[in-house]
């Protein structure tokens, strides 16, 4: 058993984990009750588990807790239903989820993109989301939400 101190959504959180290889995803969901990041594949193929670490979108299903260094932002830390981040607000406005299981990854990947590229082209959004899978066929709305968030200009605030 080892203790790991994680910087999550601006807070320092200590967790005791037996296996250093346990993915960050399980720790977030089960120890910290941050269930926004989803288990989709455990293989880094679908993006449902994405969080932002030091500005980069990271697949937590493939990140051992022992290697989770840096400032972690989960979707809960990005914004709330009452005070959504610009990307979240755009997803709500565009009604850009069906089942919504992929939404975490879409929102987090888009937020990370817009933090660096304030006015991306549609092709750049497609590129950023190239390894994120949506199964319901909500892609068109997701891209529209990303473009709306970029247009709102506030997305780079985080």
């Amino acid at each position: 058993m080892a203790r790991y101190t994680l910087d999550v959504n601006g807070q320092s959180r200590a967790v005791d984990v037996h296996d250093p290889q346990e993915p960050l995803l399980y720790v977030l969901r089960n120890d910290l009750n941050l269930t926004g990041a989803k288990y989709g594949c455990g293989l880094g193929q679908c993006g449902a588990c994405t969080v932002i670490i030091d500005g980069e979108p990271v697949r937590t299903c493939m990140t051992p807790v022992s290697a989770a260094k840096g400032r972690i932002v989960t979707i809960e830390g990005l914004g709330t239903p009452q005070k959504p981040h610009a990307v979240q607000a755009a997803f709500i406005e565009e009604q850009a989820s069906q089942c919504g299981y992929c939404t975490n990854g879409m929102v987090m990947t888009t937020a990370a993109l817009l933090a660096k590229t304030k006015s991306p082209t549609k092709a750049q959004v497609n590129e950023a989301l190239a390894a994120n899978i949506c199964r319901c066929g909500t892609h068109d709305r997701i891209v529209k939400a990303a473009m709306r968030a970029a247009a709102s200009g506030a997305a780079a605030s985080k």
Partner: peptide, 19 residues
């Protein structure tokens, strides 16, 4: 009429079976 589950889905507060 906007879907009631959309704010929760976009902010990680919606409770799926998995959560």
């Amino acid at each position: 009429v906007k879907r009631p589950d959309m704010p929760g889905k976009a902010t990680g507060t919606h409770v799926w079976m998995h959560d």
